[in-house]
Amino acid sequence: MGNVLKAGKQYEETHVHEVYEQIASHFSSTRYKPWPIIERFLQELPAGSIGLDIGCGNGKYLAVNPNVFIVGSDRSSNLASIALQHQPHSVVVADILDLPHRNGHFDFAISIAVVHHLSTTERRREAIDSILTTLQPDGRALIYVWALEQGSSRRGWSEGDEQDVMVPWVMKGSKKSKVTSGQAPSDQVVIHGVEDKTFHRYYHLYRKGELEADVKAVGGEIVEAGYEKDNWWAIARPKDVK
């Protein structure tokens, strides 16, 4: 991104929120398989637990455990309406920095591939604080963010690369040549009878240790943390009763 002065709420509106709103249904059609660590976190919850899925997207994680109650939220109303189908859960449109969920009340929260869309350290920490504030003292939050260290992925970023990047989302039109497998630099979806259209989303790529540092900076405690397939993840708990 380069220009830090541009970062902030308005920047995210243009480079994150408006993009997801436009690519919602195509994005959703590519997001259906839950990740193992997230699936296990949700499956191990006692029946009757109540929680949040902040930035729930199409709601693929709402489908994992029908014995808990999740109030999902997403910034995109188009994605929220797709997520609405998953019983017994609920979905609202909300911003991660202004969640309507009651403070100090929930047993768990997940926020998968969301915090990295905030464009300053301060705002990313505020987002994590916002998540932890909704938890009861024994509550747990599972947070996933994209890693800078993605040496093995097709994107090929690694340590030393720029952390603030624009990642293309290509809606592939059938009028153009076929996608060559393995060479694609971005997510791609084929839409028949239309031209290619490329959208760019802003990401902050987390480096090793950065997610843990952000959690601790807002008074959270790390319960467990790790790396899984191009992502850093952490299970955090609130340190103090708020």
Binding site: F69, S90, V92, A94, D98, P100, R102, N103, H105
Partner: peptide, 24 residues
């Protein structure tokens, strides 16, 4: 939104969230 949801939600404004009048 199903009515159950409203038992878990309050006003989204930070200045309201800790105020008892903002729930339900």
């Amino acid at each position: 939104m199903k009515l159950l949801t409203l038992n878990f939600l309050t006003c989204a404004r930070k200045t309201c969230k800790s105020n008892a009048a903002a729930f339900p």
